[in-house]
Amino acid sequence: MQRIYEPENLMEAQMLIGMLASEGIDVFLAGRDLVGATGEVPIHGLLGLAVADEQAGYARQLIDAYNAAQPMPGDEPDSYPGTLIC
């Protein structure tokens, strides 16, 4: 297994797990059980997504595309330009 990404929070981790799973990639989330200790343990690098070695390249491509995504014109609220509506 390779650790391929460190999500900012548990919500981003779960969303990425769902996206990768929809592409047939099995994902392990390291640090999920430590989130409750935030404040007691350092949080940088606490969460990590790991996938099988043979799926790591494709998973990284999908995450790169996720990180590069831009809102489509008209899909963002007027009060928050550049923000996607989910």
Rank of each mutant, 00 (worst) to 15 (best):
46 L>H: 00
86 C>W: 07
72 M>L: 13
19 M>T: 02
85 I>P: 05
14 Q>C: 02
10 L>T: 04
62 L>T: 04
64 D>M: 07
30 A>D: 05
86 C>R: 12
86 C>E: 07
42 P>M: 13
39 G>A: 01
14 Q>P: 00
33 D>T: 04
58 Y>H: 10
50 A>V: 14
51 V>N: 03
40 E>D: 06
51 V>T: 11
85 I>V: 15
11 M>G: 15
8 E>C: 11
43 I>F: 10
6 E>A: 06
4 I>F: 10
46 L>Y: 00
35 V>T: 07
51 V>M: 03
16 L>G: 09
46 L>V: 02
8 E>R: 14
19 M>R: 04
36 G>W: 00
83 T>H: 14
81 P>F: 06
51 V>A: 06
58 Y>E: 07
25 I>S: 03
76 E>L: 05
43 I>N: 05
36 G>S: 12
47 L>F: 00
17 I>N: 02
27 V>G: 05
72 M>Q: 15
78 D>T: 08
51 V>E: 02
61 Q>H: 08
50 A>F: 13
19 M>W: 01
31 G>L: 03
86 C>V: 10
70 Q>K: 14
70 Q>V: 15
66 Y>N: 04
39 G>K: 01
35 V>W: 04
84 L>T: 13
1 M>T: 06
7 P>Q: 07
45 G>N: 14
21 A>E: 15
21 A>W: 06
4 I>N: 12
6 E>C: 09
66 Y>G: 10
34 L>I: 02
17 I>D: 01
11 M>Y: 15
54 E>L: 15
13 A>I: 03
84 L>G: 13
4 I>K: 12
12 E>N: 09
6 E>Y: 12
38 T>N: 10
71 P>Q: 08
23 E>V: 01
8 E>H: 11
28 F>T: 12
46 L>G: 00
24 G>I: 03
58 Y>M: 12
69 A>D: 01
15 M>C: 08
44 H>V: 13
34 L>R: 02
30 A>K: 04
14 Q>W: 05
40 E>I: 00
40 E>Q: 03
60 R>L: 13
10 L>K: 04
48 G>L: 01
76 E>N: 14
76 E>A: 15
10 L>R: 07
22 S>A: 13
65 A>L: 05
80 Y>P: 00
86 C>F: 07
14 Q>D: 12
51 V>R: 03
82 G>P: 10
7 P>F: 03
60 R>V: 11
42 P>A: 14
